[in-house]
Design a protein around this nucleic acid. Structure first.
Length: 675
RNA sequence: GGGGCUGUAGCUCAGUGGUUAGAGCAGGGGACUCAUAAUCCCUUGGUCGUCGGUUCAAGUCCGACCGGCCCUACCA
């Protein structure tokens, strides 16, 4: 029996889990379930990654403490994971005393090995917010090509790289102010000292070959740069004990969270940490995305090596999720949050679909909605579940044959395939495993077809034959359910309920089940309704502005400066104007007027108002009809050159083309009071 | 700019240098009725991105080019 410690990358505590994240967690969960079914001792550890500037910014924006924010996000993350059947042995947080202790331990080892060096570096400082600015929080003009609105580290237009201090006219995206250059002490890990070790380790088969090649040709072909692992305070994280005022950069403590969280699990389960992280008997497996591979394959092994922890046995690296061949997009509705998915669809669908697309290679994976529907409906419902649903009821009363009948070697074929499928799972080639399983399923249905149980049951003298055919069919189904169990734990449970036997071990596929009762068949999986996918995508389009990872808005103060705030008023003053939601039901040009459009506004029912609005310069009558606006409904009617105006609609902007009508959000009804 | 990966049927993908390049889905035709319009049988469909090289033999190995995705260290 092997002993395995498995991790998925720690999700950042700043935003919800989406279907892109799930590629990794489902991949890991499938692998872990496979290991457990195969009889290995396997512990699956994960945690929220909670430190860094982005957390502070979001907490501030929401007016609460970082701790409050990360507690809430952690709860949401765990709810999402559990909704998809992802079973961690323990889910922790990098903001824990256990993690802090391991950070200290590794730090001490790095100091002792003389791996740390100090250096003053220039960085942009936001004087209003009182923080140093990471590159992504600065925008300015590229010093190389002069393109405006470029990030602080490299230019999107000309690809030049530079230091944020070189940026022309830099602006802090946090406050909109001009940051100043300040010098600060930073601590660096000199991983170049482990260059030789990393050369060997990265090429030793622990990584997919494409990653090994990438590291070899991109990082390891020149001296490794020192790794800046400290940030001056204020910073949400752990303060460095021998360097007060400086904090460990979030990427220092994030992977350490793997160990800290394992420690928590050990303490709760009477285990020793050293048995899991400092023992040759335990394999350590990391599952990560290709974007963070250099952290896990250079910095992380360097730290582990220095501090005497186990090195990863294998780093499993996956690509990114695309939807319909394109990056997930909020405006297209393909940025689908886990919780949103669960509102509409069965998690089994996604588990299976991803399994059919995952391999051991570092490849992007595309989610194609039509293929998604057809794979679930034809593979799972049509081929696999159908085997049970078309035969179970024929032998509900008599159960399975007491001896396994002659099936022409089918069961044997199924059982023999177990080791190949097992190998594919082990290697992470889930798509290959799924293909082999479906090839088996393709042999099972013709068996039923050729033996036509629906004919046999018409003839009482063929009762035994009927029982035998169904026994074979259900056993083939059972084998498929076992092979699919890591991917579809729910199906395995339901199959087990049908046959009165829990399917928990890979080896069960080697021996047919005979002589036992067969329970009443219940639907095991719904067909996918494409309308539900559409609904999910449609709803995802509307959550566009939630869950931003950083303030993306850089609104200028010009408008406010041009029109300063008015004198303070009381609530009674505010309630004087009666603002109502109204629908424009008619809009006409007023030929003689330069600025006016004539509008007929409906307040619901038969209530209408005739209003002349000075918006001709910005709107066409045609585009106005039907839309909802906000009107001042109790404004005294005013006689104008072209008729009486019975109110006013509300808009902002200086005039001319820049007039912006206010619209109520979806759901508002004409006649409703605004207040 | 540098680097990694990738290009095979309408779609998604298999294809350890060795017959005439395969599967699933989709398309076409038929059968069946036990099953969630599920299943079964038959069938249409390909200059393996392009050009060149190595080889008795290339989808497979090598090179160049064209297209796509991704990474490029202080965003996590």
């Amino acid at each position: 029996m092997r002993q395995l410690l498995v991790t998925s990358a720690l999700p950042y505590a700043n935003g919800p889990i989406h279907i892109g994240h799930l590629v990794e967690y489902l991949q890991t969960d499938i692998w872990v379930r496979f290991q457990k079914m195969s009889g290995n001792r396997c512990t699956y550890i994960c945690a929220d990654d909670t430190h860094g500037t982005a957390i502070t910014i979001r907490a501030q924006a929401e007016g609460r403490s970082e701790e409050e924010l990360i507690a809430e996000v952690s709860e949401a993350h765990q709810r999402d994971f559990s909704g998809f059947g992802i079973e961690f042995d323990h889910y922790g947080s990098t903001n824990s005393e256990e993690s802090r202790a391991v950070c200290h331990e590794i730090w001490t080892a790095l100091r002792k090995a003389d791996m740390i060096k100090e250096e003053e570096i220039d960085q942009l400082f936001d004087t209003e917010k009182g923080v140093f600015l990471a590159d992504r929080f600065v925008r300015g003009t590229c010093p190389n090509c002069g393109s405006t609105d470029q990030p602080g580290d490299n230019c999107d237009k000309c690809n030049a790289t530079y230091s944020p201090a070189d940026l022309i006219d830099p602006v802090s995206t946090l406050s909109g102010t001009t940051p100043e250059i300040r010098s600060a002490k930073h601590l660096f890990v000199q991983i170049e000292k482990l260059h030789g070790f990393l050369n060997d380790w990265t090429q030793s088969g622990t990584l997919p070959s494409e990653s090994a090649n990438y590291l070899k040709n991109f990082f390891l072909n020149e001296p490794l740069r020192d790794w800046d692992i400290s940030r001056p305070g204020p910073y949400f994280g752990f303060e460095i004990p021998d360097s007060p005022g400086n904090y460990w950069y979030v990427w220092y403590d994030a992977p350490i969270g793997y160990i800290g969280t394992t420690k928590q699990w050990c303490d709760a389960n009477g285990e020793k940490l050293d048995d899991w992280w400092k023992s040759e008997n335990t394999e350590v497996h990391h599952f990560i995305g290709k974007d963070i591979q250099y952290f896990h394959t250079l910095f992380w092994p360097a730290m582990l090596k220095t501090a005497g922890f186990s090195l990863p046995t294998k780093v499993h690296i996956h690509g990114f999720l695309t939807v319909d061949g394109e990056k997930m997009s909020k405006s297209r509705g393909t940025f689908i949050e886990a919780a949103k998915y669960l509102d509409h669809l069965d998690p089994s669908y996604l588990r299976y679909y991803y399994a059919t697309r995952l391999s051991s290679r570092v490849e992007d994976l595309d989610l194609n909605p039509e293929e998604f529907v057809s794979k679930i409906n034809s593979d799972l419902v049509g081929k696999v579940v159908n085997l049970a649903s078309r035969t179970a009821k024929f032998i509900q009363n008599v159960g399975l044959s007491s001896e396994y009948p002659d099936d022409g070697g089918l069961f044997e074929t199924f059982a023999a395939k177990g080791s190949d499928i097992s190998e594919a799972y082990e290697a992470g080639d889930f798509s290959k495993a799924m293909r082999m399983i479906m090839e088996l399923a393709d042999q099972a249905n013709p068996f039923v077809e050729n033996n036509a149980p629906w004919e046999l049951r018409k003839d009482e003298s063929k009762a035994q034959e009927l029982q035998d055919v169904c026994t074979v069919s259900l056993n083939l189904f059972r084998t498929l359910a076992i092979y699919l169990a890591p991917v579809l734990p729910e199906l395995a449970i339901k199959a087990g309920e049908l046959l009165g036997e829990e399917l928990t071990s890979w080896d069960q596929a080697q021996k047919p089940l005979t002589g036992s009762a067969v329970n009443k068949f219940k639907h095991m999986m719904q067909r996918v309704d494409p309308a539900k996918i559409e609904a999910m995508i449609e709803e995802s389009k509307q959550v566009e502005t939630t869950s931003t990872t950083a303030p993306l808005f850089e609104d200028s103060g010009d408008a406010l400066a041009a029109t300063p705030l008015g004198e303070e008023i009381t609530i009674d003053d505010f309630l004087k104007p009666d603002l109502r939601v109204a629908r424009i039901i008619e809009a006409n040009e007023v030929p003689e007027a330069r600025k006016l459009i004539q509008l007929t506004l409906s307040l619901g029912g038969d209530e209408t108002r005739n209003v002349f609005a000075g918006i001709k310069s910005a709107y066409e009558p045609g585009e106005l009809v039907g839309r909802l606006v906000v009107m001042v409904a109790n404004l005294a009617p005013r006689k104008m050159k072209f008729g009486v105006s019975e109110g006013m609609i509300i808009a902002s902007g200086p005039g001319g083309k820049d007039i912006f009508l206010l619209s109520p959000d979806e759901g508002a009804v004409p006649g409703q009071r605004v207040g």
